[in-house]
Computed example of a mutant assay.
Amino acid sequence: MTFESLGLSEALLKAIVEQQYTAPFPIQEQAIPAILAGKDVQGIAQTGSGKTASFVLPILELFQRKKAARSLHLKVLILVPTRELAIQISEVINGFEQFLPKKVKNTPVFGGIPLNQQMVKLKNTEILVATPGRLLELVSTQSINLAKIEMLVLDEADKMLDLGFQEEVNQILALLPTKRQNILFSATLDTESKLIKDTLLCDPIRIEVEATEKNIDLIQQSAYQVDPERKGPLLRYLIKQKDMKQVLVFVSSVRTADNLVIKLKKNGIQAMAIHSKKTQGARIEALFSFKKGGIRVLVATDLASRGIDIQFLPFVINYELPRSPKDYVHRIGRTGRAEASGEAISLICPEDEHHFKIIQKKMGKKVTILPSDELNLTGM
């Protein structure tokens, strides 16, 4: 199937080529026609499956099809769990909009920066990309009116609930008009996500794109046994020995992230951290610098990692294992995307071995575990 067959305009097709998309992903093949037809859509898809474009493209197409003059009220609300994801979706919209004859203003809003700075940008916004807490703040100051929303998109609904946004989501739903189109995307359909789906969607088109073995098979996985005191030197050894120009390193805590960056810099490896204690400006700067090749290593916690979307990322390292197998797959899925290969490496201390066995069992794939005691880490 081609993008031309999905009913998109020439301007959008030109932007798709410009963004180096060659053929639609399965989620896009099914979601784009359904959204264009006005259907409610429930999508079960992992990060990296192409889901952002699957709702951004038809939204922009629908704006182009409106024959009436622009009515500058808020029409589309895209609700997301994190500021990084809000920024990423806004950037995707901007990229696809570049050739459109009718420009559509989108504005991302999120916590971490002064409310007034975002309030002044809201004028004439037609697509709002928002985190729940900041959206309710703007509603409380009467900066936003949700009464004329025509389409609601809930992206990463499962993560939104994991982060404790159930009450905020319910408050927002109560403010929206009853008649609207609803799009819900989630990596899984757990009990809470199913409850939102049953409440929100009307006779939805259900699309499920599983994290298939084919996707995982694109990722070369390995692990190293290591004693805790040799963990830092081993990380630096692997970065230098494999000449990693761009590597995303996952840790479990803010403190570990900051300490790791200090040690990497002391050893001549440019690195920055991205986590919840960083200011919004610092997080944006770190992500931008990493994407553009200004730094080799981005150290991230799981919470901050939502929204880090980098095509052709060659390496991911689990400096510390995540708590759940689902998060492990999410982490390594940052590489091996867009049909490209990638490498994921985990550092396994003795106390991690049992947990790593559980992760492998849940993933349905055995990972080669290599010894590291004979590696010469002197000077690392």
Rank of each mutant, 00 (worst) to 15 (best):
A11T: 12
L13G: 04
I16G: 05
E18N: 13
A23F: 08
Q28Y: 11
Q28G: 03
Q28N: 09
K39V: 01
Q46K: 03
G50N: 06
I59D: 12
I59G: 01
Q64V: 00
R65C: 10
R70F: 11
K75L: 01
L79K: 03
T82M: 02
T82C: 03
E91T: 08
G95R: 04
L115N: 05
Q117W: 06
K121I: 00
E126I: 00
I127L: 09
T141M: 10
I144H: 13
D155P: 04
D155I: 00
D158N: 10
D158F: 07
K159H: 06
F165G: 01
N170F: 10
A174C: 09
A174I: 07
I196H: 08
D203Y: 05
I205P: 02
N215R: 13
L218Q: 07
Q220V: 07
E229A: 07
R230S: 10
R230W: 07
R236A: 14
A257F: 02
V261M: 06
K263T: 08
A271V: 01
K278E: 07
R283E: 02
A304C: 06
Q311R: 05
L313I: 14
V316Y: 15
I317Y: 08
V329H: 09
H330I: 00
R331Q: 00
R331G: 01
I348D: 06
K365M: 10
K365G: 04
K366D: 13
I369W: 10
P371M: 12
